[in-house]
C-alpha cells in the first residue's frame, strides 16, 4: 500500500462541497432518522461555509442528496426572494450544478426555513426543514442528558403540564410556532418553527420530511404516511392561526397563511406568505396560463 493509493486526485472542492466521508455519515444518520420517526439522531455536523444557525443542518442534508438532475427550491419564511434563501440557493447550485426553481411543483428537493409550501407535496419530493432547536423539551428541561432520558421513557408529562398551565393562565395554548407534536404515537418532536398552520401538513403526507439542526447536531425525520399529532387535550381542539378568512392584498389569494404588513394608518394589510404561490396567483389573475397545484387548505380550512 502506498500513500498515493489512499488518496484521490486533488480537487479544489468535492462535488456538493461535502467530502465523501461527511456524506456517508449523513446518509447513515438519515436512514436511522427515517427508521425511528420523530426521534433525534445525533450526528457530527461538519462546518460548512455558512454560519451556524443559518441553515447549516438542512444544508448538509441538501448537499448530500443533490445531484445534477435534482431540481432545488429554497425558501425562508415562505419567500424564495429572502436574502438568506437566495444565498443558500446560489450556494447549492454553485457546488452541485443542480437546477433551481421557485415553483413548488417543479422542485424535487425543497429546503425551507419556518414554512411548508401551500401546494401539496408529492411522493417524489423531499422537504428539508432548517431547525434551530431540535429539542421540544428544552423549555421544560434545558439539560440535554435529562431530556434524552425523558424521550427514552416517553415521559412527556411536563410537556403536557406546560400546555395545561397556558390554558389555565391565558385561556388557550400560547405556543406559537414550533408546536410540539407526537410522531408515530411514540416520540414528541418539534416540527421546527413552522406556524401551527403548517403542522397538519406533516400528518400522513405523501412526501418525506427531514429536519436537521446543524448547530445542535441532531437530525430527525417524518417519513411519508406517518402520524404527526399536535399535543392537544380532548376538549381543547388544535387551533391554527386565524388566517383562514384573510385575503392577500397583492394577489387576491384567500385562505392561506399571511404576512401582516403594518400600514401608516394603524391598520394591517396582508400578503400571502408562500411568495411563489402569490406570484402564480397574480399571474393567473392577469390572464397567464399558470399551473397552480392543489393546496392543503381549501377555503381557509384543512379538510379532515
Amino acid at each position: 500500500m502506498s500513500l498515493k493509493s489512499l488518496t484521490k486526485p486533488w480537487q479544489s472542492m468535492s462535488y456538493g462541497f461535502l467530502d465523501p466521508s461527511a456524506k456517508r455519515e449523513l446518509r447513515r444518520k438519515m436512514l436511522k432518522s427515517v427508521a425511528v420517526p420523530g426521534c433525534q439522531m445525533p450526528y457530527a455536523s461538519r462546518e460548512v461555509p455558512m454560519a451556524r444557525g443559518w441553515g447549516t443542518g438542512a444544508l448538509q442534508v441538501s448537499l448530500t442528496l443533490l445531484n445534477p438532475q435534482m431540481c432545488v427550491k429554497v425558501i425562508d419564511q415562505g419567500a424564495d426572494d429572502s436574502v438568506n434563501a437566495a444565498s443558500i440557493r446560489r450556494f447549492l447550485a454553485r457546488v452541485s450544478g443542480a437546477p433551481t426553481t421557485l415553483d413548488t411543483l417543479e422542485a424535487h428537493l425543497i429546503q425551507s426555513r419556518h414554512r411548508i409550501p401551500e401546494e401539496f407535496l408529492r411522493e417524489d419530493q423531499i422537504l428539508v426543514l432548517q431547525v434551530p432547536n431540535p429539542e421540544p423539551l428544552r423549555s421544560v428541561q434545558p439539560n440535554m442528558s435529562i431530556a434524552r432520558q425523558m424521550h427514552a421513557d416517553a415521559d412527556y408529562g411536563r410537556m403536557w403540564l406546560q400546555l395545561y398551565e397556558q390554558i389555565v393562565r391565558s385561556g388557550r395554548i400560547m405556543q406559537g410556532a414550533s408546536y410540539p407534536s407526537m410522531v408515530n404515537g411514540r416520540h414528541v418532536m418539534t416540527p421546527s418553527p413552522i406556524p401551527r398552520w403548517d403542522v397538519p401538513k406533516l400528518n400522513m403526507s405523501k412526501h418525506l420530511t427531514i429536519l436537521s439542526a446543524g448547530r445542535e447536531k441532531r437530525i430527525f425525520a417524518v417519513p411519508p404516511y406517518t402520524r404527526v399529532e399536535p399535543l392537544v387535550f380532548d376538549d381543547v381542539p388544535y387551533q391554527v392561526e386565524d388566517h383562514g378568512a384573510l385575503t392577500c392584498k397583492r394577489s387576491g389569494a384567500k385562505g392561506f397563511f399571511m404576512n401582516e404588513i403594518p400600514q401608516d394608518d394603524g391598520t394591517s394589510a396582508f400578503e400571502v406568505s408562500d411568495s411563489e404561490y402569490g406570484v402564480k396567483s397574480i399571474r393567473q389573475r392577469d390572464g397567464e396560463a399558470v399551473n397552480l397545484g392543489g393546496t392543503w387548505y381549501k377555503h381557509g380550512e384543512m379538510p379532515k
Binding site: 480537487q11 472542492m13 468535492s14 462535488y15 456538493g16 465523501p20 445531484n67 445534477p68 457546488v95 450544478g97
Partner: peptide, 9 residues
C-alpha cells in the same frame, strides 16, 4: 467552478 460529479459519487 462547479465541481463535476464523478462516477463513484
Amino acid at each position: 467552478n462547479t465541481p463535476v460529479q464523478g462516477v463513484d459519487e
